[in-house]
Amino acid sequence: MVDQGELRQKAKEVISREDVRRLIGWKRGTYGFEAAPAVIKDPSEADELVFDPTCVQNPASFVTLEEKPPLPRGVEPDLRKVGVFAKGCDSRALIQQMVEQAYERDHIVVIGIPCRGVIDHRKAEKLFGDVTPDLVEISGDKVVIEIGGEKREVAREDVLMAKCLRCRYPNPLISDVLVGGEVEKFADDDFSDVDEFEKKSPAEKWEFWEKEFSKCIRCYSCRNVCPMCYCPECVVTRLKPQWTRRSVDLSENTSYHIERSWHLAGRCIECMECERVCPMDIPIMTLNRKLTRDVKELFSYEPGTDVEASPLLTSYNPQDPEEYIM
């Protein structure tokens, strides 16, 4: 359990710095099992900040989401740093953004938070219904949730995000300030879900995806929330040339989803935000996980773990596998 006082104190120190202009963290949401991302600009706002297992959103997304409209003549851009809270998975997103040179290391001040898992609101709502918890904390192997004065203990796998149940990086990989002590690694990833899916025949796989892709309403929330999707103009909404049409049907939806996951090949750091935000419950991570596994298997590459690495698809090794090439 992270001490909220320590968290706010450290946040206050960071946002009070002369060279920091904004700080991205979390605050209480207005309802439900999820906190809200918070962007604060003044030390007085630091008392709103919180951290607990409801803080699911990836603050790294908001570093690249910030828009920079053209400034009036004579106005200098504010180039001061951005403070950002980061759980283990969030820190991988920050690293990957830097690997791609989205910004320099000294553009951000990272406040690392060791994390023991965050809530999956879908699982929680199934268990507890449409309610707002008073308190959520992880103690040992259990998750304690207090609703209306009544405390309940549930198993981790019943309410935590799937990514947390296979988390290999509970501690932030980079941080300038650390809140709370580091936690011990508590899970591992064997990609058994990918293996399981791969047992299907091509026809069965398509039968599955046909249903899922036809649900998509193309709100692009999966794209926008992704910390790795920060192109100024996305190829799926470009009109000239128009690779993907705007009409929403199976053909264009398939094209969109393949493009989206393809563009994350060797870049996805598995924060699972895309799947969390999807209003149509499309299992988007099933595509991303396949690529993550293959990238690891074929190229021994793991995105977002090394600031010095070069991006997977802009580098090569003459000995790369040629599995299906004639």
Partner: peptide, 9 residues
């Protein structure tokens, strides 16, 4: 690199 991955996807 690209098409080995795309093929698998």
């Amino acid at each position: 690199r690209r098409f080995v991955l795309m093929h698998r996807l």
